[in-house]
């Protein structure tokens, strides 16, 4: 039996909104420690790795490991019915073919209950494992979202060049070029506005703008995003949850 109660429905709403446009369905792997998902988009360029640790939940129990195959579009429709501030409880029996979703209004005496039909999903898992990182950038997630949107008007590719004291975002397209430079900054009064760059090796990588547009749909999940870059390797874009994370692994583009 799985039962997880979110203090606010808004958290699961944001997670599903951040995932549903790149992955249509995925397995939610539930253990006593929490819920995890790994899913790859159809083009096998972008991988999503989600971990919702049990501490994220107001109440959580999972007696036996279970895998729940979920259509994210369908889940999004159902959880869209609840108010952001509602308690949201998801539950499933060990051999369930449906996921129970219950919203409890915190003010009114109102409980809404839905069932989502589960899917049998046979998906490949990729061994992403821990890896060395050449450069790590942490910046406000809203700033990163704006950089991606602004650069996308110029080109299908965004080049990220990291040196010791700056990160350069560059797009070169038919209509012209764009450059945005950010430098480390410590903001004591507003720590969420701080920018950090740590570097072992300079980085020059290009990523597809269309995939970055999918990644920045996670912006509302966290005030900061951490970007981990390694030469000739996928970039990792991490949005922290209250306890856990939503990570995107994006394959880079290479010159011929």
């Amino acid at each position: 039996m799985l039962e997880g109660k979110f203090e606010e429905a808004s958290l699961l709403k944001k997670i599903v909104e951040a995932m549903k446009d790149c992955v249509s369905s995925c397995n939610f792997n539930c253990t006593e420690n929490g819920i995890s998902v790994q899913a790859v988009d159809n083009s096998r360029v972008l991988l999503i790795s989600l971990l919702i640790e049990k501490d994220t939940f107001e109440e959580y129990r999972c007696d036996r490991n279970i895998t729940l195959g979920v259509g994210l579009g369908s889940l999004s429709k159902i959880i869209g019915n609840g108010a952001n501030s509602d308690y949201l409880t998801i539950s499933a029996d060990d051999d369930a073919d449906k996921l129970n979703i219950i919203f409890e209004d915190k003010v009114k005496d109102k409980i809404s209950e839905y069932n989502l039909k589960l899917l049998d999903i046979d998906a490949d898992l990729l061994d992403v494992g821990p890896m060395d990182t050449d450069a790590t950038i942490t910046l406000p997630s809203a700033d990163f979202a704006k950089i991606c949107k602004d650069m996308k008007v110029l080109s299908e590719s965004l080049q990220i060049i990291v040196t010791k004291d700056s990160a350069l975002f560059q797009s070169v397209g038919d209509i012209g070029t764009g450059n945005i430079v950010i430098r480390p900054k410590t903001d004591i009064d507003h720590p969420e506005e701080s920018v950090t760059i740590s570097l072992d090796k300079p980085i020059d990588l290009s990523f597809g703008s269309k995939y970055l547009s999918d990644i920045i749909k996670a912006t509302s999940l966290s005030q900061k995003v951490t970007i981990k870059l390694t030469d000739q390797s996928p970039g990792v874009f991490e949005y922290k949850l209250p306890s856990g994370y939503l990570r995107f692994y994006l394959a880079p583009k290479f010159d011929e």
Partner: peptide, 14 residues
């Protein structure tokens, strides 16, 4: 134009 790689080139399928 740079070529888009896919993740299979970097990670093994478990």
């Amino acid at each position: 134009t740079p070529i888009q790689n896919d993740l299979n080139e970097f990670y093994n399928i478990i």
